[in-house]
Design a protein around this nucleic acid. Structure first.
Length: 655
DNA sequence: GGCAATCTCCTTTTT
DNA sequence: GGAGATTGCC
């Protein structure tokens, strides 16, 4: 019963746990991943075969890393160990035994596709002209949130948007139509993938026994971010499979997807026979970085009960740097990166964090300008980029001729065909399940170019996935080149090679299409050799679970932390605090926060609408950070302390 | 007049 | 990169 000697006492105790279900409450940097790896190693060495374990993580990246690290320890003995996201695990489960779930060939649709359907249904609604009816995107989010939080539409609307009750029946109609459309077209959205498995497990004993018998233990990473839909998946299995869960309430940042960080506190009530353990010593960061992280949480109205202590001791003070514009902000970061690289630091030791993918674009331009190699995690995903969607629309049609979203995208690519013509064509083949029949109907359509139809016919008879894609690409090349000639066609056309490489291993067309919708690849991410030395640019959400020697958090500005979008409730503002907390605790040795604009600490907070939403850094104690203001002439490297702070508004509330 | 092509503004977080 | 408004073509 040996465990890895490099573990501390708490980690070793968790890894060699012999009781029933366990929740390991692990603060940032306390060795969460290491403990999961050690647990897998322990089980494989002592009791389980690798294929009877499964590790659930939040990203493909984390999953791959864990499997890789177990393999380093155990070599071939870890063969068969799998880790995946919840979604991808459900998809694999369905694919392995489609009969158990009553579904075989399906097209997985992403958010953009969902929005397309909601847009059509919204405009067809009798309340379409009513300004009170939410936009398609809001309807889509509403639908998804209700499912993920396992509440009813009425309950949710009553609690959160009571005004919308006036249009309740219209909203219900739209959502019913959405569900009908999905089943008619063989579409599965992200939530369906979980729901199909969760519902079948909950309702069907036979399925529960079969799946339950497949595993000894499931290890769940980032437990604080699981939502009620994911719990619905886990619950029926608790009697069959042991769960080993790891999480940190202070790092819960998926409330918008139905996760409730308080759930982790009631773990032992929700899971019969469960125990809880804690990991408290931080091995990642220096004490100065933890001081500011601890301070941020201590300012919260919630009792997080977190005070991280650095095993590594003291280091450098974090830096807060203010610039006059986002351009000077991003230029400074690029120059700082160059400076450190010239001193011998590899690029890959740097992580740049942003709240939104959009705000990463300015820094991205500076990196390109200075020729600094980087990858953007959370930026554009390869399968979501326009040219790939264009190409794959043809492939989607072949995989599922009922796929109207693919049809409209494909048909409107060609010159002289717009929404209306494509809409008519789709109408004509709406119920045609065979591609052959659809093609012969469309041949008679006058506005459609014969070439565009021939391509589909040619691709259809190819023997494998790559050959189909090659055929489609050859036929579409000229059209795509014309469409993207002003937008980097040279670079875009290279992506076809990536697509072909990915597809060469796939036997089934829909497996290939679905896999990368569920587990995305990023455009700037090198597909096969990601050992490359690159700076990482990432949204904070996508950076969860990672760490880096030097971390830049950009745009730490009033309005961004907390985001103006979160002003509605204290709960959502507190989630923003945790987002910043996650960002701070990624840093091992150097933490640099940057921001831009003209504001003073006092005015920053004064513009906030209510008493509880203040700019997080307003009350930052003087000695916690090195503060540099580069906004004014000649201001350059002098370090300054903060201005006199506004006295915090304490006391009772009268109204 | 109907439809396609083009231009301008805005951008939460993810599977 | 997309939504929505506007322009311009048949």
């Amino acid at each position: 019963m040996m465990v890895d000697g490099s573990l501390n006492k708490e980690q070793a105790e968790a890894a060699s746990w012999s009781g029933s279900h366990l929740l390991v409450l692990a603060g940032a940097g306390t060795g969460k991943t290491k403990t999961i790896i050690a647990r897998a190693q322990f089980l494989i060495e002592n009791s389980s075969s690798p294929e009877r374990l499964h590790i659930l993580t939040f990203t493909r990246r984390a999953a791959a890393e864990i499997v890789e690290r177990v393999k380093l320890k155990l070599g071939d003995r870890s063969k068969g160990l799998r880790a995946s996201t919840f979604h991808s695990w459900c998809m694999q489960t369905v694919r392995k035994q489609p009969k158990l779930f009553g579904c075989s060939e399906h097209t997985v649709i992403d958010r953009e596709d969902q929005l397309y359907i909601f847009k059509i249904l919204r405009s067809a609604s009798s309340s379409a002209k009513d300004a009170r009816l939410p936009k398609a995107a809001a309807l889509c989010d509403l639908y998804s949130f209700v499912r993920n939080s396992n509440s009813s539409l009425r309950e949710y609307i009553e609690a959160e948007q009571p005004k919308l009750l006036e249009l309740f029946s219209s909203v219900v109609d739209i959502m019913k139509c959405y569900e009908a459309r999905k089943s008619q077209k063989n579409y599965l959205d992200y939530d369906d993938i979980l729901d199909i498995v969760a519902t079948q497990l909950a309702e069907n004993f036979q399925v529960r026994d079969i799946i339950g018998d497949m595993y000894d233990e499931i290890l769940v990473d980032e437990m604080q971010d699981t939502n009620p839909l994911q719990w619905k998946l886990i619950n029926p299995l608790l009697e069959h499979i042991r769960f080993f869960c790891v999480g940190d309430d202070a790092q819960s940042i998926y409330g918008f997807r139905g996760a409730d960080f308080k759930n982790i506190h009631s773990f032992t009530e929700r899971v019969a026979g469960a125990s809880v353990m804690r990991l408290s010593l931080n091995y990642r960061s220096t004490q100065e970085i933890l001081d500011i992280s601890n301070w941020l949480l201590s300012e919260s109205v919630y009792p997080y009960d977190k005070n991280l202590i650095a095993a590594r001791g003291l280091g450098l003070k974090p830096v807060l740097r203010t610039f006059s514009s986002e351009w000077s902000e991003s230029r400074w970061i690029a120059e700082d990166l160059l400076k450190h690289h010239a001193n011998g630091d590899p690029w890959k030791e740097n992580l740049i964090l942003t709240r939104t993918a959009y705000s990463g674009r300015t820094i991205e331009m500076s990196l390109v300008e200075k020729k600094i190699p980087y990858k953007f995690v959370g930026g554009t995903k390869l399968f979501e980029s326009a040219h790939i969607k264009d190409l794959l629309s043809a492939v989607r049609i072949i995989a599922n001729p009922l796929d109207e979203i693919a049809w409209i995208r494909y048909l409107t690519l060609w010159e002289g065909v717009g929404d209306v013509t494509a809409g008519q064509a789709i109408e004509a083949i709406a119920l045609t399940e065979s591609l052959k029949d659809a093609i012969s109907i469309l041949r008679k359509h006058q506005r459609l170019a014969p070439d565009s139809i021939n391509i589909l016919e040619d691709a259809f008879i190819q023997v494998n996935v790559s050959a189909m894609i090659t055929t489609c690409f050859k036929g579409m090349q000229g059209t795509l080149e014309n469409k993207y000639k002003a937008q980097n066609w040279e670079k875009r056309s290279q992506d076809i090679n990536v697509i072909l490489q990915l597809s060469s291993k796939k036997v089934s067309l829909s497996d290939f299409l679905n896999e990368y919708v569920i587990d995305p690849l990023y455009v700037t991410e090198p597909t096969l050799s990601d050992e490359d030395d690159k700076v990482t640019l990432s949204t904070i959400h996508s950076a969860k679970g990672t760490e880096s020697n030097r971390v830049y958090i950009i745009n730490v500005t009033p309005g961004a932390y907390p985001s103006t979008r979160s002003y509605g409730s204290e709960e959502s503002i507190e989630e923003e605090r945790r987002v910043l907390y996650v960002a701070l605790t990624r840093a091992k040795n150097e933490l640099i926060m940057t921001r831009s604009g003209y504001f003073s600490e006092a005015s920053a907070s004064a513009t906030m609408p209510t008493e509880y939403s203040r700019y997080f850094l307003t009350t930052l104690p003087e000695n916690m950070c090195q503060v540099v203001d580069e906004r004014y002439e000649g201001a350059a490297t002098e370090s300054q302390t903060l201005h006199t702070l506004e006295k915090p508004g304490i006391g009772i509330r009268f109204e």
